[in-house]
Design a protein around this nucleic acid. Structure first.
Lengths: 129, 129
DNA sequence: CTGAATCCCTGCCGATACTG
DNA sequence: CAGTATCGGCAGGGATTCAG
């Protein structure tokens, strides 16, 4: 039996802290799972774009209408970044007018619980002063 | 019979999307719970500092030893930021040499599950290409 | 020992203008 | 319609130096 010899049965064997060797990195490396996720969510507007797509697939124009004060350039940046991160799929429709359809990948849909966790902490948190 | 209604309970009644009016904001406002949490976690090294303090209380020097390539200034910045965000408590010890003790607040400890969620997604995620 | 002040450099964000 | 090109402002991060 390859039993773990642990003095504290207290820590959970979830793939997180502190059982995984990656949990002992001493600098912000791109290989750290936490960094990977934060990198995917990085940038202003990013979580709002994901929220829109969690509700339904959207085209570029629909996203622009849903987030009126977001400029074309930044929206384009975010969509490119999220696509490259494997969070979104982009499909250009041939014909006129050209439409580009965006939808979450399975990994993107798995961000739902992550956003929920972020929401829950922020909702419960009452900042001091 | 407080059984969960199966099928499609339409929305989960969790305090998140899309039942809360705050879930309909159309720009990144500081009042959005997700933004609050991301603001607390903002900045390089921040999550690593929190990880250290999730394991045990630490002094400034202990943190510096745990994260050797983190400069004094940035460590100081992070600790000030997290303290102001209500994530950790600072206690200066009188006497010599001066030591400052850092520990997580209850809210700070509640970041554990949040980091776990970030970890889980990043660990499961296999970026394309 | 524990920071604060300063400087420089880089990268993000927004606005505007332009193309397939 | 769905972007790309370019530019400027500004905040973040690192190194160094100074102070309580």
């Amino acid at each position: 039996m390859t039993h773990q010899t642990v003095g504290h049965p207290s820590h959970p064997l979830r793939p997180g802290l502190p059982d995984d060797p990656l949990a002992q990195v001493t600098e912000p490396t791109p290989h750290c799972p936490v960094e990977i996720t934060l990198a995917a969510l990085r940038g202003r507007w990013t979580t709002l774009v994901i929220r829109e797509l969690l509700q339904a697939d959207r085209t570029f124009t629909e996203l622009r209408q849903a987030l009126p004060t977001l400029s074309d350039k930044v929206l384009s940046d975010r969509l490119a970044h999220l696509t490259e991160a494997g969070v979104l799929d982009r499909s250009r429709r041939p014909g006129w007018p050209p439409r580009t359809h965006y939808s979450l990948t399975p990994a993107g849909r798995r961000l739902g619980p992550v956003l929920q966790a972020l929401w829950d902490w922020g909702a419960q948190h009452q900042p001091p002063s």
